[in-house]
Design a binder for these strands. Structure first.
Lengths: 313, 313
DNA sequence: TTCTGCTCTGCTCATATGAGCGACGCTGCG
DNA sequence: CGCAGCGTCGCTCATATGAGCAGAGCAGAA
């Protein structure tokens, strides 16, 4: 049975060839294969994770006024969804980045996933857009930059500094450090930026873990709904809490807005409002998401996602 | 593509039916399915783990003088091999146990695996053959007994006592405890016992972790090669170190030998000599193993396993 | 515009495949 | 010993399938 299954399914032989190879009748081969499937020796799985859904993507791009959107199928735990979205973002960069670009990378679990799935890239300069948060080396923005630069062969410009400081004074001092300043200067020359979308309401952002209870309370009252690269945005797309930005080592709103191409990656339906807010704020030109999030965004304002999608291949 | 793959592979429709269902030509269906396989949407795996190898089993039974042997394919890490062997032992019990039997269970990682794969059983009384070792509740003999009894609906006779004590006196005292004594009395009425084989040279037995350095040294010098239910056996099949048995809460050699049916489960080629020793000692009548161990046992004394096996289905 | 190359589609025809059937061999029973 | 019951095997024939081909649509170049 196992040998028959190997021949037929792995080596793609016909049942007649398999029969000849094993010295049995083709009928017996058919019965062996049938048995092998029943016994679980042969398992056939149809897994659409990572498959793009162009219809939803087009509808999403139109809805949010983006130049492009990528929507992929993803199921299972949040971590798996992030992994698929990250892989899709990696593939998008791989097929669109051109040699000589200056690529800015923010940070988040989705972008960590992206860095793990990154295909070989043309030679680009990679710049870290934000300081670090937390102590997990594997998930740090420095590591994301390192991995992506490794795939490209271009220069890497990391920022060895915390993302959030206790007061603006310390942040200013850090910004004047030679290495940090060098990275910040490159923010004006970015051709492509990649950011992760964090949601503040419902709360789903790693930035939240770094804030004091008072900070959170104040921001909540200020109407913060979403976050990219530590830039806080309200439901209407306005940037709030600029005094918070002064405490952050991160790209500024204006610098990010001036970047010609901003790819936002977001995973999970609970980020629907956050994604909408970011798009309204003009803080992304392209979006990579999973199906559930895309559908949630489209249905937020009464757009029926079923209309957008027809005849998934 | 995904829908075509679902229809064809999951629902077992023909390509023509699939074509009709999707409203496309059968040729397009063929091309979609081809693409789906190339893109990894459809994965076909041939996994022979757990498939029995009757030729080897017969050779092994003849070689060791057993009434029956079961040999299954198993690959990968030790834990996976143990899991497959455990599942095979569970299936064997499921198809051979009769109502009213008294089933004794020893303990080990393979038997823990067995207890997780146990099919529904006829009503039997389950008795724990040894005390407990270590503190992992999930892997304790009590848990094995509990799980198996649950599948059978019969009574469970656990032993809440350590397997190894520091001195014979304490062990004797424990054996006089009402609950313990009740279990020990049932050892004389066992109809089937299931034991795991531990190897002492090379060292691969959980019992080893419970012994002092002096104990090990003494036993090594006494020529201990194998162990079942804390019974220590030399290469020639003789039981050694009976004074150790006095410190153990466990079934005795004579009681075990009198049991009509003793199923031994063993996983991993490094237990070849141990298995041979146990069989020589008359401490098993049936054996459940993986292919690698079976081949190792057969080739120990120059028997070529390739001769035994011919034409695996 | 027209041409050219490219991809995608569905066709024909030879071949592979599955459903259903009768023959064979094995096992247990009278 | 003969026979019924059961499972397995390979056959026939209708049908499904794949290889290769030709036409349609489409994008880019002249």
């Amino acid at each position: 049975m196992v040998r028959a299954a190997r021949h037929y399914y792995v080596d793609d032989m016909s049942k007649m060839q398999t029969a000849d190879a094993l010295g049995v009748s083709r009928f017996k081969v058919a019965r062996l294969l049938e048995g092998a499937r029943e016994l679980g020796i042969v398992t056939i799985t149809v897994d659409d994770a990572g498959v793009p859904v162009p219809e939803l993507a087009d509808a999403l791009a139109a809805h949010l006024g983006l130049s492009r959107a990528v929507v992929v199928e993803a199921h299972g735990a949040q971590a798996e969804v992030r992994h698929e979205v990250g892989a899709a973002a990696a593939a998008l960069l791989g097929s669109t980045l051109r040699q000589g670009e200056v690529l800015g990378l923010a940070w988040g679990r989705t972008l960590t996933g992206m860095s793990h799935s990154m295909p070989p890239l043309p030679r680009v300069d990679v710049v870290q857009l934000t300081g670090a948060l937390g102590t997990d080396l594997e998930a740090s923005p420095v590591e994301v930059v390192r991995r992506v630069a490794l795939r490209s062969g271009g220069s890497a410009q990391p920022i060895f500094a915390p993302l959030v400081l206790d007061d603006p004074r310390t942040a200013d001092a850090l910004r004047r450090q030679t290495d940090v300043a060098g990275a910040l200067r490159m923010f004006d020359h970015l051709t492509t930026a990649v950011v992760a979308v964090g949601s503040w309401d419902p709360p789903n952002s790693q930035l939240l873990t770094a804030l004091s209870q008072e900070d959170r309370q104040a921001m909540h009252e200020a109407g913060v709904r979403a976050e990219v690269a530590a830039i806080l945005v309200s439901d209407t797309g306005e940037v709030v809490s600029p005094e918070f930005a002064r405490r952050c080592i991160s790209i500024g709103v204006d610098q990010l807005r001036r970047t010609p191409r901003i790819v936002a990656a977001a995973a999970g339906a609970d980020k629907a409002r956050a994604v909408t807010a970011i798009a309204r704020a003009g803080l992304c030109t392209e979006l990579v998401t999973d199906r559930a999030l895309a559908e949630a965004v489209l249905s937020l304002d009464g757009v029926d996602p079923a209309v957008a999608e027809r005849g998934t291949a």
